[in-house]
Write a protein that binds this DNA or RNA. Structure first.
Length: 422
RNA sequence: GGAGGGGUCGCAUAGUGGCCUAGUGCGGCGGUCUUGAAAACCGCUAAGUCCUUCGGGGCUUCGUGGGUUCGAAUCCCACCCCCUCCGCCA
């Protein structure tokens, strides 16, 4: 979230941000309510100060008549506070709720644009290969017996599938390979976080209130299923004041992700591109504000490195203001070419959330002993999403005879399988 | 799920309605002393927020939320978390 102080002092910046993002936001209501809140606050605090001062006199008063007279005098003040306090609380709660609906301010470097159509390709490596003989992964997967759509549906309904044999193994190999790359080569610390979190955690990382419709929720125990490891990783240091020397912190986590995908019903129903459950390796960075721009480039390169190692054609798309996520100030998507379905697939989204999530989750650091705490900047990026990486690997490494070669980088994790055949 | 114990400043503890503006010890920071260090002694030791004439001043926070009261760390209610034992269990 943005600080109320920032909104109050820079309403023009917020208004511009909302316009650039093509999204409405309760800015005017916030400004008006903030004025009222501060009036109420001054008044109740003045009364409380009076009450505190009188309380001391009452405590010190020995003579019963004098004491009673002082107590009676304070009853009016007390009653007035009882009137104002609930009003103040209501104003604060409402203000809080409204502030949570304002998205992050786009980075000045983020290109202004209306929608996805205005995103620009920043760089591309490799070509859009097209061969008539190449099959989409769903045909390939069924023919090889490594993706079972029917049984997935039998167990759980549409948008579920199961991997078996070399398919399951290859996904596991991809996970192990990605984790090893980020840990050993890029210097991340591995984390295995809970996939079920409490509601508060979803608010802190910005999933609630906006994406409620896309989340699974266990009503019985009030647990929420994470839609991405970004959620637990953000909250890992929630409420903490980190010593300045600890930054930057780089974490990588493999988790399942759960999404209801209600809003996109009917889209991408074919294959394994968009399911209710999928696996993802996620990178996450906590750093000082002045470092986040460089950290974003570094994380982008770490995501790309996975594509390079797998020998995939990839491109980097710079997201414009109209397509920018709620939490992000700046985002790059990494897409890989899928010759079977003939499209670029988003396998990673790398974002600088600046201090937006840090403020929600109250994550701060101290530059040096005794210095005022400041909010950290947070960055997250997929490294990478598994199903789409699987698609790209299968479709790129398929051979005219219908078999799929295992990329060299995965061989150490495949237990001797070099080619997947029916 | 059951029984019991507990949650107070970075850590450890004290505090059973007003002298709590939360004490004490440890740790940390600064200083005195010292060639240097230790010891001893002295001082400091949180966060948030509002107002400000920029000197400061106020308010909130003792697990969380309500309640009683002129006044709550302290009394009442609900909830959360931790520890010990029992049950169950991958």
């Amino acid at each position: 979230m943005l600080s109320l102080q920032f909104i109050r002092e820079h309403p023009d910046v917020v208004r511009r941000s909302l316009a650039d993002r093509q999204t409405p936001g309760p800015l005017d209501e916030i400004l008006a309510l903030d004025l009222r809140r501060r009036d109420l606050l001054s008044e109740t605090e003045r009364l409380r100060a009076e009450q505190n001062a009188a309380g001391k006199k009452i405590g010190a008063a020995k003579e019963p008549g004098e004491r009673q007279r002082l107590i009676d005098a304070m009853k009016g003040v007390s009653a007035r506070i009882d009137e104002l306090a609930p009003e103040l609380r209501k104003a604060e709660e409402r203000l809080q709720a409204l502030a949570l609906e304002i998205p992050n301010i786009p980075d000045p470097g983020t290109r202004v644009g209306e929608s996805e159509a205005d995103n620009v390709v920043r760089m591309q490596s490799g070509e859009e290969t097209r061969d008539d003989w190449r099959k989409p992964h769903w045909e390939l997967g069924e023919a090889l017996g490594i993706i079972d759509f029917e049984r997935g549906v039998k167990l759980s309904g549409s948008r579920f599938y199961l991997l078996r044999g070399a398919g399951a193994r290859m996904q596991r190999a991809l996970i192990a390979f990605m984790l090893a790359l980020h840990i050993d080569k890029h210097g991340y610390t591995e984390v295995y976080p809970p996939a079920l979190v409490k509601e508060e955690t979803m608010w802190h990382s910005g999933q609630l209130p906006k994406f409620r419709d896309n989340l699974y929720h266990d009503a019985e125990e009030d647990y929420w299923l994470v839609p991405t490891a970004e959620v637990p990783l953000t909250n890992m240091h929630g409420g903490e004041i980190l010593p300045g020397g600890a930054l930057p912190l780089h974490y990588v986590a493999y988790t399942p992700c759960f999404r209801r995908e209600k809003m996109s019903a009917g889209r991408d129903v074919r294959g394994i591109k968009r399911g209710h459950q999928f696996d993802k390796v996620e990178m996450y960075t906590f750093c000082a504000p002045e470092c986040s721009a460089d950290e974003l480039e570094a994380m982008l390169d770490d995501a790309i490195d996975v594509c390079r190692a797998l020998g995939l054609s990839y491109r980097v798309v710079e997201i414009c203001t109209g397509d920018l996520g709620f939490n992000a100030a700046r985002t790059y998507d990494v897409e890989v070419w899928s010759p079977g379905v003939g499209e670029w697939l988003e396998v990673s989204s790398v974002s600088n959330c600046t201090d937006f999530q840090a403020r929600r989750a109250n994550i701060r650091f101290r530059r040096e002993a005794g210095a005022r705490p400041e909010f950290v900047h947070t960055l997250n990026g997929s490294g990478l999403a598994l199903p789409r990486t699987m698609i790209a690997v299968m479709e790129n490494y398929q051979r005219p005879d219908g078999s799929v070669e295992v990329p060299e980088a995965l061989l150490p994790y495949m237990g001797g399988i070099g080619v997947i055949t029916p």
